[in-house]
Design a binder for these strands. Structure first.
Lengths: 213, 213
DNA sequence: TTATCAATGTGAATCAATAAACAGAAACCC
DNA sequence: GGGTTTCTGTTTATTGATTCACATTGATAA
C-alpha cells in the first residue's frame, strides 16, 4: 500500500483510529459513522472523513465505514508488510514502562531487545524482552535487523547511543531524553520530551485559570 | 508577566530554550546568538528570533541575547509567580520515571504527591514524593492546592481519575494513557500517547527506507 | 414515486506555523 | 571616518492543518 505524503498529523490519527476501532470491534457492530469515531477521539467528523479520504477509503452512505475493512486498510498503510523490530536502550523505569505499555499490542511492530548498563539487568528477560549490555547495541541491531530504536537512557548518553544506532542501521528513533539529537535525513527522529510537556500544561493551566474568572 | 496568545509551539520552545540556556550558563559566556540557540535545538535562527520577539525580548546587536536575563524572562512568562503543585496518579514504572525525570528541575513547578492502589507503595516516599492511596486524590489535591495532575494509571481507570481531579480543582492534566479524556474547557488537557508516537516513527522509518533506496 | 433525511466526499476558506527576505544598526577594519 | 560585516527585528510569503460549506447520494417514508 502506498500513498504519497500523508500528513504527520493524519498518520498519528490513523494509529488512534485503529486503536479505537479495535476496541469496538467486539461489540457486534459492523459499521461506524465518522461522527462516532470523532466522538471517541474528541475531534470533528470532518477531520475523520478527510483523513479517510486521504487514504482512499470510502464508506457507505447511510451505513458508515466497515470497521473490519478499515482496520485492515490502516494496517496496510501504516504497518510494514514484513514487520519491524524495535530495541529499547535504557531499561530504567521509563524503559520498562515502554515495554509494558507496548506488550502484545501490534504483531507487525515488536520490541525484541532491551539494553542497559546495570549487570543485574543483563541477560534477564523483562515482559518477554531480553536485556543485553549496552555495548552490544550495534551487534544485536545488525543481527536482528532492528529498524527502530527507543532511547530512554540518561540524557548525557543519548547522543552516543543515537550515533551507534544510526551506524548500525536503524531507520527511526524515538528519543525520550530532553537532549536534542542530530541524525542524518534518512533516519526519522521523533522527540518526546516529558518535561516540556509538563511545562506546557503548567503554562496553559495557569492561563486558563486567569481567563476563567 | 502577561502576553496574549502565545502559540503552543512557541511555549514548547520557550521551555526548551530555558533548559538549553541553563546548561550553557555555567560556561562563563554571558551572551548567546540566535543561531547558537538554534543549533542546540536543531531549528532555524529565524524561529528563535521570532519566538523572542513574541515575548518582547530584545537582544544586543552583535552581542546576541543576555543569557541570564533571558532565562529570567522566560521564567516570568511560563512559570506561575506563586508556583504550581503537581500530583502523579499511578506510581508504576511510568509514574516513577516521571518523578525521577522531573526531580529538582524547576522550583516553581513541584511534584508533591503521588497516588497508587498498591498497599506496598502507600505511605512511602519515592524520590522525595509521598505516595497516598488513590482514594485520597480529591482530599490531597484540595488540601495542597494542587493545580496540575499527571495520569499514569492503566487506561481503563483514566477517565475516572480525570473526573476526580477536575472536581477537586486541577487546572491542567497531562494524560499518559492512550484513552482520550473529556474535560471541561477551563481545564487544559495534554495527551501524551507513547504508542501512537512509536507507530508514527515506524511509519516514517518505513517510508524513509523506501525513499532513500 | 416523490420528498425528505442523514450520511459521505471534497473544493475553497481560514487559521496556524515556518521560512524567506530584507531593513537597520552596532562593531570592526582599514 | 567610511565601508563592510554580522547580527537583530519584522514584514511578507509559503507551507501545513483544520474547518466550512455544500453538492451528492442511497435509504426511508409518505
Amino acid at each position: 500500500m502506498f500513498i504519497k505524503n500523508l500528513p504527520h498529523k493524519t498518520v498519528e490519527r490513523l494509529s488512534q483510529y485503529r486503536r479505537a476501532l479495535l476496541m469496538i470491534l467486539s461489540k457486534e457492530k459492523t459499521h461506524v459513522f465518522s461522527h462516532e469515531i470523532a466522538q471517541m477521539l474528541h475531534i470533528t467528523p470532518v477531520q475523520v472523513r478527510r483523513d479517510l479520504m486521504l487514504i482512499g477509503y470510502s464508506g457507505n452512505l447511510r451505513k458508515g465505514y466497515d470497521i473490519k475493512e478499515l482496520i485492515d486498510l490502516i494496517g496496510r498503510i501504516i504497518d510494514s508488510e514484513k514487520g519491524q523490530r524495535v530495541a529499547v536502550v535504557g531499561l530504567g523505569n521509563l524503559g520498562k514502562a515502554i515495554i509494558s505499555y507496548f506488550k502484545g499490542k501490534r504483531s507487525k511492530l515488536a520490541i525484541i531487545a532491551a539494553f542497559d548498563i546495570n549487570p543485574e539487568k543483563i541477560n534477564r528477560v523483562y515482559d518477554g524482552v531480553a536485556c543485553y549490555h549496552i555495548n552490544q547495541v550495534s551487534e544485536i541491531i545488525k543481527q536482528n535487523n532492528i529498524s527502530i530504536g527507543i532511547i530512554s537512557v540518561p540524557s548525557e548518553q543519548a547522543p552516543e547511543i543515537a550515533e551507534t544506532m544510526v551506524l548500525a542501521g536503524v531507520k527511526g528513533i524515538l528519543n525520550f531524553t530532553p537532549k536534542p539529537l542530530n541524525v542524518p535525513p534518512y533516519v526519522y527522529l521523533e522527540e518526546y520530551d516529558m518535561i516540556t510537556s509538563l511545562e506546557k500544561v503548567a503554562f496553559f493551566a495557569k492561563k486558563n485559570d486567569e481567563r476563567f474568572k
